[in-house]
Computed example of a mutant assay.
Amino acid sequence: MPHRNRTDAIDDAAVTIGPLDLRARVDEALAVQAHAFGLGDDEIAVRRQIVLRHITYPGARSLGATTESGRLVGFVYGMPNDRTHWWSTVVEPYLRAGGNEHWLDDSFVITELHVHPGYQNRGIGRTLITALTDGAAQPRSILSAIDFDSPARGLYHSLGYDDLARKVLFPSAPKPYAVMGAPLPLRRDDP
């Protein structure tokens, strides 16, 4: 699906949202994530192995945002939640404490969503996440985001995600996260 954006000095004006072979383009995707999130080489190496493992899980899907020249400037991937996966085992006690443990069942997890900073605030992230969740068989979606008032959390709230747990601590993560959930399909009205 074409997604037109204003001209960016970094690259092409037009960005297309479509299927992404994340295994083949994992390094490009992680470069976007590193740029957007400020990650170092060691952390990228660890995340590379995680992404390559995740995309082998049943139902895992990914979409990318590419410029006319083929440069990847954004991506999203996710999968049906499985309570045995590491993420679920970490967030489960926090969700249980708030009476929201049931969100771990029959949910589609947004594992990663990142847009290169030069392409943010153009609706690319919104298009990526809604297109990915529109194809989900599950009736709801869950995700985690750093727990502060960021543009990402603003986007998620505008799509209908609510906070299910706050101050969630992941091993080796320096900042707390919020776990958020939304019924599918995601809200389409403008914030």
Rank of each mutant, 00 (worst) to 15 (best):
T84F: 11
P58Q: 12
L52I: 11
A145D: 00
D106S: 03
V91W: 04
P80R: 01
P139S: 00
R122Q: 13
Y161K: 09
G70P: 02
N81L: 07
R61N: 07
F75I: 06
H116S: 10
M79F: 10
G154R: 11
R47G: 09
P58L: 13
T127L: 08
I110A: 10
N100F: 12
S62H: 00
V168E: 13
F170Y: 15
V168C: 13
L169K: 13
G98T: 12
D163R: 00
S107C: 15
A137D: 15
Q120M: 06
W86C: 05
G59E: 07
L113M: 13
G64I: 07
I110P: 02
R53A: 14
T89H: 07
L159I: 14
P174C: 13
L132H: 04
R126C: 08
R166M: 15
L63Y: 03
L128M: 01
V109R: 01
P93D: 03
W103Y: 08
Y119K: 05
Q49F: 14
L155T: 05
A152T: 10
I146P: 02
E68S: 15
H85L: 13
N121H: 13
A173V: 13
R53D: 14
G99Q: 06
R122M: 10
Y94R: 02
R140I: 07
T111Q: 08
E112L: 09
L128P: 00
F148D: 05
E92I: 03
H85E: 15
A173D: 15
S172R: 15
Y57P: 05
Y94C: 03
R153H: 00
D162Q: 12
G98N: 14
P58A: 15
V168N: 10
S62R: 04
F108I: 04
G74E: 02
